[in-house]
Design a protein around this nucleic acid. Structure first.
Lengths: 200, 200
DNA sequence: CCTACCGATCGGTAGG
DNA sequence: CCTACCGATCGGTAGG
């Protein structure tokens, strides 16, 4: 019985988090009110506070939930015995999968993180800086091995991450091209560029 | 004398617009208050309304100011007798120049347009859709001529635009690499990809 | 989980 | 360009 109550509570909070991510994406964190959120959950605004501490808590749970998954994947990929290019491809694929499976959360992390407040804000910025640094290090390895052009690695990281994060149609189930085709296109363009190669 | 007053008024409004772009970028449109703006201009909040009609007017003047420049450039490039690849390179260069010269405004247009209200909101979305369609058409031409790989053109457009729009360091004068080197890197990566070509 | 409500802050106006 | 102020809305709390 206690178990049932706990399960009920935790699933209630998960519903609130999901609806919050959706609202924050649609209207932006500041423009989305707790009354909006309450309505979409189906309770009065005051009732939300039986499950959460504050609006800000929702934002940082969304942001760190996503950020932690990316960090975990980075650790995993770094440990694999594959080439730098293969590591980059694995990371790109993971980013795309995250966009497909958790579009709202990833979008909110990407565009609304600046509304975090300060223990969390600096923490988030540090974590993001570390992630990009480690991503850039993989590119540098590829450059050393001459599998990657001698480009500025941190510029390349920003291009890759924003190119993926900017695709807006991930969440639509009915899209002009399938997720697989989109993924193949992304990888092809980001790794190989848009120019036709001499080899055909 | 009347001329002097007009000049004074218009320069006053320009100051307000510039400060607004800066604040909207830093805090986001919703989180930036008119009292913040007044302080950064150096007047009381109520005084702003002698120069502007509303907060929303500031946002749409910023958004359409930038959007119109992009549209104008698109028209110009379409009319030039150069190859599709050269057209794309010209457009990419223009986007990069806009980021360097008008970082705050471009950033606000990119990330805060959703706070426009409705005659302007739909107008903006239409204009953006048209811009992307015309950009994609150039890529399609390149594919027909076999200068560009057979990729999905609208995916490629989103990748190009977001890759450029995502670079955050445009506005810093002291950067690790120069604007020219950054531009060269961007063009190289976006057109040629990151993989080293067989030709070396 | 709700009713009732609070202090703070918002965009904007009146009147000078 | 300022002082004074308004109605609306915000995140959140008290108390049941």
């Amino acid at each position: 019985m206690a178990r049932i109550i706990i399960d009920k509570n935790s699933s209630r909070k998960e519903v609130i988090l999901t609806k919050a991510a959706s609202l924050f994406r649609e209207k932006g964190y500041k423009a989305a009110s707790m009354r909006d959120l309450a309505e979409s959950v189906g309770v009065e605004a005051a009732s939300l506070y039986n499950h959460i501490k504050s609006k800000t808590e929702l934002l940082h749970e969304i942001c760190f939930g996503v950020a932690n998954r990316f960090m975990h994947k980075m650790e995993e990929v770094e440990g694999e015995k594959i080439s730098p290019i293969e590591k980059i491809e694995a990371l790109i694929r993971f980013h795309i999968d995250e966009m497909i499976l958790h579009y709202e959360e990833v979008y909110v992390m990407d565009r609304e993180w600046k509304h975090l407040s300060d223990p969390y804000l600096s923490n988030f910025q540090n974590q993001r800086r570390m992630y990009r640094k480690r991503f850039a290090a993989i590119i540098e390895q590829g450059i050393s091995l001459k599998n990657i052009k001698p480009i500025d690695a941190s510029t390349a990281v920003l291009i890759l991450l924003h190119a993926i994060g900017g695709i807006e149609s991930w969440h639509r189930s009915t899209q002009k091209i399938s997720a697989e085709a989109l993924t193949a296109n992304m990888i092809s363009i980001l790794i190989g560029g848009i120019a036709a190669s001499a080899k055909g």
